[in-house]
Write a protein that binds this DNA or RNA. Structure first.
Lengths: 362, 362
DNA sequence: GCCGGTGGCGAAACCGTATCCCATGGTTAC
DNA sequence: GTAACCATGGGATACGGTTTCGCCACCGGC
């Protein structure tokens, strides 16, 4: 047995093995498999038989080296188990699959360093696009680094897509898919205000998170519009999780805060808040109203069902992928023209059963 | 400008561009970057400077073609947004990242055809392993196909890992990471029985799903152990979703079924059941007790908090990755020896507030 | 002052596939 | 009857790295 001709060896079969065994050239095998070149039926038959016998599949790495290959989109996400952005990922993945694209997934675990490392890793993979999911941190340095990434990717023929965060400032070659965060918060706060609530506990999220800022701003604008003074003391920042919702409400109650409604930054926070109210013997919505944000499945599974803001997460994912696919098919001619594209999707309030007019307390 | 030497062109920089600009050979650049060969400080400095200037990253495809490259694990999952298996995916991804591995994700959407296509796609990618998440269907043909996949992957130096389903029969080169599904169901049913419940509505899931079968078996065994006749008329099959839980309870109530507890196949089904009971004016757990399965975050976010079976999903993901990593490091010597490995993790009941002794109805 | 090491580096052979270019034989057009 | 042509198939090369092999210079030891 020669040294490098061992078709039945441990490794996978190569196109050469197939060609040899079928008594044809490798070029012919390649042509039969890709089907973009006329071949005789006889040849096709012979090749396909050997392909089946050897259970041959083409080597994707070699293929993409040689110019072919399936486009791949990289999805970078904080935490797969977070419902909201898992839906975005689903949207991206679904749309990618529909076009025969592949999706790579990396999780950043809220660590900017890992985010950096991952973007570079994806650049090595030669992905068609990197989709970054979730709210961003508003450091200057962070923003600068993102801009550098965007340019690096662009220079390498790839592209950066930001989903669920505001666009980068300046002339940066990145696409942003966003939703109208502030308006959603405005509408949600208005809903509470128009129900008669005036003392509202606000749990917008982490102070540095862009998402949280927008939601807080929207709420504040609604207060202004209703002529209600906005009390900064009624705002409690914290992570977007159940525990924060629970503790914020628990602490507020213990400290004797006076409120008839809770405006939570996300549905999960609202769930925590609801539980804390129950634990304190308060009824929702009879004693205290609650609203959330995101409209994840949990919102309609709680009792009472949560009034919240619907965000089209899955649709955002699809839109994100469509944006990069279009750009890629548009060819190099329009590459520079569509820089800094910003797509904004709408939100709307979903009214369920967690809001009632304020009760008379004391 | 020559025809193929255009470092500042559209595409990304190659190792040759770096070598040329640094006045060294490509071999040296490669050595500096991979760091597995002694080089002088002077050389390293020169090369690294050019690498930074050009913002060069190695081409992962070329690298893996040449034999190097980062191992990649493929995660195939029904639906990313399903909480339970999203946690497994998180576990796999986390453990992969920890070792510098990459993870590819594909969703099957419960379609066996897509599953087939995806496994082949992953084989093309030359992944180190394919991790298949979720309960399997119990067709003979399906099992046969899985066995073929396992052998194909094995022949190509890859490996199939089944998570959350029973192992394949026969001598198949696949690793299975499983949890003690039946014992969990047994314990859960026992919990209800020992609280005094005798009329129990059972919602195990889809009849063809292996997971559902095990859970149903476990429950049945518990009934036997308690000497309680198991009434098949109290079993309602259906998908593992909220709607099914709701409808099953609603229908049962409408048809006048007599039960004091609900044994749900998953927490999500339990949530639906709970909502339906509430809608019918019944209290949980005073009028009807409910238990779930999986212990996803939702379980502790419901009111009352759900008594359920904890399944170590994330841990399973980590174990799955460790299994393939070990096998790969073990070298070819023990490859055949560890075929058909089957790892079983334990489960336990988590007691919360959704179970009470049966109320007197009549 | 000559010789065997040895540390550093370059040249070239691959890795597996796609594709360009050319050869061949049979067909069509004049 | 011959030239131009079309349909096929083979040979060679490029893709961007890694790695083996071998060369060169410099080192200390005698």
């Amino acid at each position: 047995m020669s040294q490098r001709k061992a078709p039945s060896d441990a490794g996978r079969a190569t196109i050469r093995d197939v060609a040899e065994r079928a008594g044809v050239s490798v070029a012919s095998v390649s042509r039969v498999l890709s089907g973009n070149y006329p071949v005789s039926d006889e040849l096709r038959r012979r090749v396909m038989k050997v392909v089946r016998d050897l259970d041959y599949v083409t080597n994707a790495h070699a293929r993409s080296l040689a110019g072919g290959g399936t486009p791949t989109v990289a999805i970078l996400i904080n935490n797969i188990t977070g419902a909201a952005f898992a839906h975005v990922a689903k949207g991206v993945e679904g749309a990618a699959t529909l076009r025969g694209w592949l999706s790579l997934v990396g999780t950043t675990g809220d660590d900017p360093e890992r985010e950096l490392a991952l973007v570079n890793l994806m650049r090595q993979q030669g992905v068609a696009a990197v989709v970054l999911l979730g709210g961003a941190y508003d450091y200057d340095e962070y923003q600068l680094r993102m801009a550098r990434f965007a340019r690096s990717l662009d220079a390498a023929g790839s592209h950066l897509v930001l989903v669920g965060r505001p666009p980068l400032e300046g002339d940066v070659p990145a696409t942003t898919v966003d939703y109208d965060n502030e308006s959603g918060a405005y509408a949600m706060a208005s809903h509470l205000l128009s129900a008669g609530h005036r003392k509202i506990l606000v749990l917008p999220g982490h102070a540095e998170l862009t998402t949280a800022r927008s939601r807080l701003n929207g709420a504040r604008r609604a207060f202004e519009a209703y002529g209600v003074p906005f009390d900064p003391g009624m705002v409690r920042h914290g992570p977007y999780d159940y525990e924060h919702g629970y503790e914020a409400v628990e602490t507020s109650l213990r400290e004797g805060a006076d409120f008839t409604a809770v405006l939570a930054g996300t549905d999960v926070v609202a769930a925590g808040a609801m539980q804390a109210l129950r634990a304190a013997g308060l009824r929702v919505p009879e004693d205290v109203s609650i609203v959330g944000y995101d409209d994840i499945p949990l919102a309609s599974q709680l009792t009472p069902q949560l009034t919240t803001v619907h965000v089209p997460y899955e649709e955002m994912g699809r839109v994100a992928l469509r944006a990069v696919a279009d750009r890629r098919e548009g060819g190099p001619g329009r590459r520079r023209g569509t820089d800094g594209e910003h797509l904004v999707l709408g939100t709307h309030v979903v009214v369920r059963n967690s809001v009632a007019p304020p009760a008379r307390r004391d």
